[in-house]
Design a protein around this nucleic acid. Structure first.
Length: 486
DNA sequence: CCTGGAGTTGTCCTA
DNA sequence: TTAGGACAACTCCAG
């Protein structure tokens, strides 16, 4: 063999060249590099990606491959259980080292451990890095050496002790493995929808890739960070950073965001900056919870809810999913999700509260739907936030906190900008009626060309009654101890 | 081990 | 009109 044994750089939730510790390690090892992405739906306990995430991933991988190609490094694509794929490539290439950035969902984490063990047994170097979150979940502990279950002390701990390493530069050159490996074709993975192709709205809403992530970040820092704390609640204004899908797929790292925000600090209001950083730390907290509760998307964090009898109403679930509840703010949110693969955070809370409290449908139905339809569907943040809204989670909203979809619309979308964008059949209705169109006078509805029950649905539940039903039902399990639960 | 303060995002009723 | 308290109780966490 003329070539030295190569090193495999295994890409996962880190589709970027800059601030990628595994890639930097591979390059600095001096060995020829094999860049690899494995589409793994086969290892035990892997949760298959939702359709919207796959759509994003298709373009994300295209972007990563193009970026690597500028350094003459091909990206190899393989489908299969990661363990099998790695064995095969090691055999084929003679690689004697593998490196990657750690993942934290159950299936991925188990695969990590198993792979690391056999690589070492086989005399292969195996190195994993912290790349997708800032703090390893094991490292953040309470004073009594336990995992945090409440956000604020978690935040305080990090705010006091946070040392975020400086982001690594993208490699300037990569010594590439010269052997020929067979790569799958991305097109054959079928990540793009065809019948029907529902992706037009998403393609319109997003530019995908590492460069696009930084473009979006820079625009946010320049235009919207300074009053993020106030403007973020207005879904019509689009003032949030929209970093979530880039983070989820790793086009950008939380370290980069943290430092970019710090650097911008002189220009930005300190409170606004802190509020945004807290959001980043919520993501860390979610991964912390996931790590200590591997079934976070399946099991109530609070076991008291294990015997709660959720309503099983396919009709209600359907209406919610399709944005046909008759509550404009809820429907606007669900349609934004369907069309663009994303929903404004304020509205996520409103629709979540509506499904769980007004309709009393199991939060897991909502979490599943979000997982399927969000481009940022995250293994940690998605279940953690759903459990928070449902009241089953860590540090959760109390059961009596029920968002009033009429008030929320009036308060946060007072001009109806957001609602009219996604519920165009209400476009001619005066803003003051957009919270509750059924209360608008007949002639106003007529003038706006709206016939309730035909052009737009009647509300599927009455707010007041649904609220009372939720309070009564949820009160049954409040105050009763769930026993030990372990 | 004990103590005390506190806990992401709300709503509604009453005075 | 507006401001304040009730809505539950529990567990978490630091000192």
């Amino acid at each position: 063999m003329s070539d030295a044994p190569p090193i495999i750089c295994w890409f996962r939730q880190d589709l970027r060249l800059a601030d990628n510790p595994a890639l930097t390690h591979a390059v600095e090892s001096g060995k020829p590099v094999i860049a690899l992405y494995v589409h793994d739906e086969f290892s035990p306990d892997i949760r298959p990606m939702g359709a919207a995430q796959k759509w994003w991933l298709h373009h994300g991988l295209t972007d990563l491959a193009a970026n690597l190609q500028t350094l003459d490094c091909p990206l190899n694509l393989k489908s299969g259980a990661a363990e099998d794929v790695l064995r095969e490539i090691i055999k084929e290439s003679g690689a004697d080292a593998v490196c990657w950035n750690r993942c934290y969902a159950l299936g991925e984490q188990n695969a990590d451990r198993a792979i690391k063990a056999w690589l070492k047994d086989d005399g292969c170097e195996a190195k994993s890095f912290a790349g997708i979150i800032i703090h390893e979940p094991d490292q953040v502990r309470t004073g009594s050496d336990r995992p945090y279950r409440v956000y604020t002390p978690f935040w305080k701990n990090l705010a006091e002790n946070m040392q975020v390493r400086a982001p690594l530069p993208a490699p300037g050159a990569i010594k590439t493995h010269s052997g020929n490996l067979t790569s799958d074709s991305l097109d054959h993975w079928g990540f793009l929808p065809t019948k029907p192709d529902w992706s037009a709205g998403m393609a319109n809403a997003w530019e995908i890739g590492e460069k696009a992530a930084h473009k979006q970040l820079d625009a946010f820092l320049a235009d919207n960070l300074h009053d993020y704390d106030k403007a973020r609640d207005n879904p019509g204004a689009d003032c949030t950073s929209r970093m979530s899908p880039y983070l989820r797929h790793g086009h950008v790292s939380p370290h980069q965001l943290w430092h970019a925000c710090q650097d911008e600090g002189r220009m930005a209001d300190d409170h606004a900056r802190t509020v945004w950083m807290k959001e980043l730390v919520w993501r860390e907290f979610s991964y912390h919870l996931l790590n200590h509760n591997p079934r976070l998307h399946e099991r109530n964090f609070n076991a008291r809810f294990d015997h709660f009898s959720w309503r099983r109403s396919q009709a209600d679930l359907r209406a919610w999913q399709k944005g046909q509840t008759g509550y404009p703010i809820v429907d606007a949110g669900m349609r934004q999700l369907w069309q663009t693969g994303w929903m404004h955070n304020r509205v996520r809370m409103i629709v979540g509260s509506f499904l769980v409290k007004h309709l009393l449908v199991d939060w897991r139905e909502g979490e599943d739907w979000f997982w399927e339809t969000l481009v940022d569907g995250d293994p940690a943040s998605n279940p953690a936030q759903w459990q928070w809204v449902a009241g089953t989670g860590a540090d959760a909203a109390p059961f009596f906190r029920i968002f009033n979809p009429i008030l929320q619309a009036e308060k946060f979308d007072p001009k109806g900008t957001y609602i009219k964008r996604f519920v165009p059949e209400l476009i001619d209705l005066p803003a003051k009626h957009l919270g509750a169109p059924w209360n608008a006078p007949e002639d106003v509805l007529e003038e706006a060309g709206i016939t309730l029950g035909e052009t737009y649905p009647y509300p599927i539940v009455d707010h007041k009654k649904a609220r009372q039903r939720a309070l009564d039902t949820l009160a049954e399990i409040s105050g009763k101890s769930a026993g030990d639960g372990s």
